[in-house]
Amino acid sequence: MMLNRRHIRVKVMQTMYAFKGSESDDFSKDQKFLLFSIDNMYNLYLLLLSLLIEVQKRAESDLQKKQKKHLATKEDKDPNRKFVNNQLLKFLKDNDQLKGKLEAHNITNWDLDSEYVDIIFKNIIASDLYKNYMNTRVSDFKEDKDFIVDVFKEIIAPNDKLYDYMEDKNLTWLDDLPTVNTTILKLLRKVKENASEGYFSPKLYKDIDDKQFAIDLFRKTLLNQTAIKTEITQKTKNWDSERIAKVDYVLLQMAICELSNFPSIPVKVTINEYLEISKEYSTPKSSIFINGILDKLVKEYEASGELNKVGRGLM
């Protein structure tokens, strides 16, 4: 699976951040957007995997063109086919389950935007990675796999033009890119020669509970906005509310909602998750601010018996 609970919290945060209404409004549109932006992550995953397949096809047609040249050299007539025959690329290209997913999600970008396939192909060909790989004519699965892992990590993932392309195509993709790149790298590193057809078609959510968690966290935070805001105001009397970063405010709302409405999630887990997200998405001092407020709240809840956590070891 691709998504963990932290990614889900980040997605809810982004949707909450963009939400303009109040708790009495109909927010089914926003909930749809939340689920759509999570689903859209899978399209980005498929898009990047299909780029590897297109690069292999591009290499193949390149060789064919050279062989047909009027003045073909010896190297043109008998080229080193190591890259074109890369076993991992062939596994991706011939994988029917992956083909089915690409069709179902309508991933045809590279047909129209083939210049990006060219850019990546040329970058690969010009790299030392490629020169070293092509020093010999034969390879085993491990060498083929290691080469593709390096190509993805050093050439595809950091490519600026590709990054701009993603940004143009879909704004939420930029936030998804680190997660998707990590998922692809993990799969490429761990793939075995006898991998199943479904290996490169992981599930987006671990289980149905995770999808429900996304919906519940979003809805419950919005539905309890007034009460949660009162809690925050009481705990931030010395703070000018205008000065509290909007991201911090959203994260606090979600954390308080989670502490109060999700009995099976341990307090420690909730607090750690929101501190980590604030370190990544907000100001350097945010995590200290958020930690201070949540700490005070938890002590109060404990004292008044309001922390209804179930199961053992949930503090």
Rank of each mutant, 00 (worst) to 15 (best):
N132M: 04
N132C: 06
N132R: 07
M134W: 00
T136W: 03
T136N: 13
T136S: 14
F141H: 07
F141E: 02
F141R: 09
K142T: 09
E143V: 13
K145L: 03
K145Q: 15
F147A: 07
F147H: 09
I148N: 12
I148S: 06
I148M: 11
D150N: 11
F152V: 09
K153Y: 07
E154G: 05
A157L: 05
A157Q: 06
D164V: 00
Y165W: 10
E167I: 14
E167L: 13
K169M: 04
N170Q: 13
N170G: 03
N170A: 08
D175H: 07
D175G: 12
D176S: 07
L177K: 15
T179A: 11
V180R: 02
N181Y: 10
T182I: 06
I184M: 11
L187N: 03
L187F: 08
L188T: 05
R189I: 03
K190P: 10
V191D: 01
E193W: 00
E193D: 11
S196H: 04
E197I: 05
E197D: 14
Y199Q: 06
Y199L: 01
P202S: 12
L204S: 10
I208C: 03
I208H: 09
D209T: 05
D210L: 09
Q212K: 14
F213T: 03
F213L: 14
A214K: 00
A214R: 05
I215Y: 02
D216T: 08
L217S: 13
L217V: 11
L217I: 12
F218H: 09
F218K: 04
K220W: 09
K220Y: 12
K220H: 12
L222R: 12
L223V: 10
N224E: 13
E231K: 15
E231L: 15
I232F: 09
T233N: 14
Q234P: 00
K237S: 13
K237V: 11
W239R: 11
S241A: 10
E242S: 09
A245E: 01
K246C: 04
K246P: 00
K246S: 14
V250H: 02
L251W: 00
L251M: 14
L252N: 01
L252G: 01
M254A: 14
A255R: 09
E258P: 03
E258Y: 00
S264C: 02
S264R: 15
P266T: 13
V267K: 06
K268H: 07
K268C: 00
K268I: 13
